[in-house]
């Protein structure tokens, strides 16, 4: 009698034990599985640099979590293919022309993937579609590009200087000048690269604005951000100026071409020559001062709080040399 009740106790105990085990495992697993029960679809996106994005990071659309990063794979030479796991309930809001970018959740938070934009003209995104990536600039990229850009502008300025010197020194009329193929292609190339540079700068300003906007969010350190905003605005103005100069230069070149194609008016040509020479000089002067200003702004940016990390690294390596 004693023995049978003992056996029953063992069996009941065993069942309680297993039951508890399942309960605990259930609670721990269900939390993570819960999302698996929702329907998911996969979408891909190609990045040059994922900035430390990891498997399982959240995907946001209009600030709502709609999925997670499913996987990351290297693709091509150095690109990264990111596979996004998106809840189908969000499918109708995401368009084929929606874009993807990587930002972080707060200033020291985890990386998140943000899907944004998209127009109702395009269709809903479908399983396996590729979403375009808008290049997201890190502060490093930004400074590098700005400096590179500045160098370009300086080089272009030098080109213009040479050309205008020749003009002013009266080394032949504009006709002769234009007939000299090498000089012509020179000025043409200079103009084109000037335009490119300014376009690039324009793009840069766009992302710069987005970057500073993100930082300007409530809850971050507003005090230091004010200075940031000022510097960014300053950089922005300078680049805009550069752009307008580039435009002017383009118009000027076009004018030159037109005049040159009319050989029947030598006086006009001469007049034009002198005038053109002066205008060219003016343009170059503007370019010079603009690029100088841009340099100063970049210098200021170095002392800026948010970009400090980048410059600290540089300072450290130079310290190490000492």
């Amino acid at each position: 009698m004693n023995k049978t009740s003992n056996k029953r106790a063992v069996i009941v105990g065993l069942f309680i034990f297993i039951g508890l085990l399942f309960l605990i495992a259930g609670i721990l697993i269900v939390g993570n599985l819960r999302n698996t029960f929702k329907d998911k679809m996969k979408v891909v996106s190609l990045f040059d640099d994922v900035n430390g994005l990891q498997k399982g990071n959240n995907i946001w659309f209009s600030g709502v979590k709609i999925g997670t990063v499913f996987n990351l794979q290297f693709y091509g030479e150095s690109q990264v293919k990111v596979i996004l796991n998106i809840e189908t309930s969000a499918q109708q809001y995401i368009r084929k022309d929606s874009k993807v970018k990587i930002t972080s959740d707060g200033i020291i938070g985890k990386k998140i993937l943000v899907i944004y934009g998209g127009t109702s003209k395009s269709n809903e995104v479908q399983e396996g579609d590729t979403l375009e990536v808008e290049k997201s600039f890190t502060s490093e990229d930004m400074i590098n590009t700005l400096q590179e850009n500045n160098k370009n502008i300086l080089a272009i300025t030098t080109d213009f200087k040479v050309i205008s010197k020749k003009l002013v020194a009266g080394e032949g009329t504009i006709g002769k000048f234009l007939n000299d193929n090498s000089v012509y292609s020179n000025i043409n190339a200079a103009t084109i690269s000037l335009q490119n540079a300014s376009e690039k700068a324009q793009k840069l300003i766009g992302s710069l604005a987005a970057f500073s906007e993100g930082l300007n969010k409530k809850g971050t350190l507003a005090n230091e951000l004010t200075t940031d905003t000022i510097i960014f605005n300053s950089i922005k103005t300078t680049v805009l100026q550069l752009q307008s100069i580039a435009d002017t230069a383009a118009v000027f070149i076009a004018n030159l071409k037109q005049t040159a194609s009319n050989p029947n008016s030598p006086i006009g040509v001469l007049l034009h020559d002198k005038e053109s020479g002066a205008r060219l000089k003016e343009t170059i002067k503007n370019l010079e001062s603009s690029s100088k200003k841009l340099d100063e702004d970049l210098e200021a940016a170095q002392h800026n709080f948010l970009l400090r990390g980048y410059f600290k690294k540089k300072a450290k390596s130079s310290n190490a040399d000492k």
Binding site: N6, A9, V10, I11, V12, G13, L14, I16, F17
Partner: peptide, 8 residues
């Protein structure tokens, strides 16, 4: 397991 049963 008897202990588990007892504890329960």
């Amino acid at each position: 397991f008897t202990g588990v049963h007892k504890a329960y």
